[in-house]
Write a protein that binds this DNA or RNA. Structure first.
Lengths: 342, 342
DNA sequence: ACCTCCGGGGGCATCGATGACATAGAATTC
DNA sequence: GAATTCTATGTCATCGATGCCCCCGGAGGT
């Protein structure tokens, strides 16, 4: 009761007020087809007067395109993701897409749920950056022709692109840097080794050493967890176990931060006693004590490349997917220096 | 060409394969109405065989409910938001809602766009945490009966709730702490004062001092920007301007981190020369040097309260909005200590 | 004067799922 | 055994926007 003029506020209501048909309203609002300027003005006036907004569900239903994109990540609270999400979302908005964000919390089961929801929402494309996968569901997405972009992992196939992070080059720059400073005993704290990307970084480290003719000492490779706690423990272990390294490269910045703390706790100083290199260059890297030398990999770049890749696939320019490389770059701050006795 | 059995994969296709009507399929899948177990099994078999997922747009169109929630924030890269988003999204998923995330980048214009998109997507509710508002659009949302939850700002009205952060109490705890340690000259670095919440925190600080009979010295109140740079500059200014304070409270943790750096750069030590208290207790607060004493305000709590508030409004339990308070709690670490000469 | 063309605009089926209503049998009641 | 109730299922309008098809009337051609 008390409906006053509200009814449903749809295209029909506008048509009534403008004394035209719904078809004309649609044509006017979408600027498709020919409409006399005078008529168009009547329609626009009615639409703005009523504060009309088209119903996207009805649109999606008839057109088959939802202008929705899915973004699936493992865990938003991982400091790498916010920038990624930000630039992805920003580009999407610019192109009139909305973004459905879901996270898997590192659980395959939740990944399954995420993919199913994307399917139900009829998203126009999905960008995925998680360590866990539900291959069956992914195939289902592909089978229905939903464009996919994988970040950091996955395969390229029909309507699937792949944004790769150039770990090899990044780690290589880090190794070159400390070797150039004169270091020989160089340790590496890895990420959790069930992660593909963590294994890649470790391998890149070993390759980098070899390129300088340094033999990697297995005792100087420790597994971390990509968290500060993990870095702290791994570093503490390195310090306890015999002759400590003079430089330590870390699989990510949080690990490096943990390592800084372990060194501090042991009464040693960075970089005088031990040099530390991080990876990712998260914003806080400039604010550690001392400021952290790190390999910058712009999460924002990853996000925007993912959007571009998706956009291209949606446009149908390319049916076969592409591979994109995110560049990395060493940022030297004050956590690295010459070893004590060269 | 090459259609094979694919057709459209809708409820009708399932009905055909199971030799029933679409209504029966709908009833089976939604477990509404009575269906003979045997019939139900036929339907389920057909549905799973075809890997069928309901079209949410069609559902939303007919039911008027989209099972979508909007989440509007200023800026995802602000380290406060990820945890908030995480817990909001997590609860939403548990209740079969999807989340559309948008950010305003602190621009009112983008806020307008965000709200319009929410309206078009027919979201079932919106949670908002931004400093900028488009009051006209917000009213539009309210007028259409879209449940709203504001975090940290805004008014309570019909179908609008409000999640408040208990700044007064948090700041009060911080002040009590340093006063108990024996400090008298206590400075405060504010956030950007065009932010309502920043002004609230400053006022809480002044009130806290007064409660201890300490007169606030205007020279000891400096405006920051809620960033590390801002904190660094404000702290540097405090150090230059005559007799420095023995303790500094900061409007957020990034500000405190900047302050730590400025003190370090000046060759002074924390907490021996100056004590520092932060606000927010972001994850990294335990990893500064020294670890930061801070007032914990769980961003996750804010997110989950916002969801609960929204859920209650959607359920229609309460037409009038409610006010929720997020508690705060002082976490003492090593950046605070007794003043040099008590 | 008649036909053709075309700009402008209305009618209606359509997208997929739902639910109110209708109906055919079976089960229950008197 | 007829009347009445269920129970299980089918029919069909509906949600809002779109786009195909058709129609009307005026301009231009012969």
């Amino acid at each position: 009761m008390e409906e006053d003029g509200e009814r449903q506020l749809n295209i029909g209501e506008i048509a009534r007020r403008a004394n035209v048909s719904t078809a004309t309203v649609s044509r006017t609002l979408n600027q498709s087809g020919a409409v006399r300027p005078e008529t168009a003005r009547k329609v626009w006036r009615a639409a703005t007067a009523l504060n009309y907004y088209p119903n996207s569900h009805a649109r999606a239903l008839v057109s088959g395109r939802s202008r929705l994109l899915g973004l699936i990540v493992s865990d938003i609270t991982n400091p790498f993701f916010p920038e990624l999400i930000h630039s992805f979302e920003s580009l999407a908005t610019q192109h009139q897409y909305d973004v459905i964000l879901t996270s898997t919390d590192y659980q395959t089961l939740r990944m399954t749920g995420c993919v199913r929801r994307m399917l139900e929402r009829k998203v126009d494309g999905v960008a995925i950056m998680t360590s866990e996968m539900d291959l069956g569901l992914i195939k289902e997405l592909a089978r229905r022709g939903v464009p996919l972009v994988f970040m950091d992992v996955g395969r390229v196939g029909a309507r699937m692109s792949h944004v790769l992070i150039d770990y090899a080059n990044g780690i290589r720059q880090a190794v070159d840097h400390v070797v150039d400073l004169g270091h020989k005993r160089i340790a590496f704290i890895t990420g959790p080794l069930d992660l593909h990307s963590a294994r890649t970084r470790r391998q890149a480290f070993l390759d980098g050493l070899r390129a300088h003719g340094i033999k990697g000492d297995p005792k100087l490779i420790r597994e971390g967890t990509h968290t500060a706690e993990g870095g702290q423990q791994a570093m503490a272990a390195l310090l306890r176990a015999g002759k400590p390294p003079t430089a330590v490269a870390c699989s990510n910045d949080w690990t490096a931060i943990g390592a800084l703390h372990a060194i501090d706790a042991a009464g040693l100083r960075v970089p005088d006693d031990i040099s530390i290199v991080g990876f990712d260059d998260i914003p806080l890297a400039s604010y550690t004590n001392p400021p952290l030398t790190s390999v910058r990999m712009s999460a924002g770049d990853v996000g925007s490349m993912a959007f571009d890749a998706l956009f291209r696939l949606i446009g149908g320019d390319r049916l076969e997917g592409d591979v994109y490389q995110v560049p990395t770059k060493l940022v030297v701050r004050q956590s690295t220096g010459k070893p004590k006795r060269a």
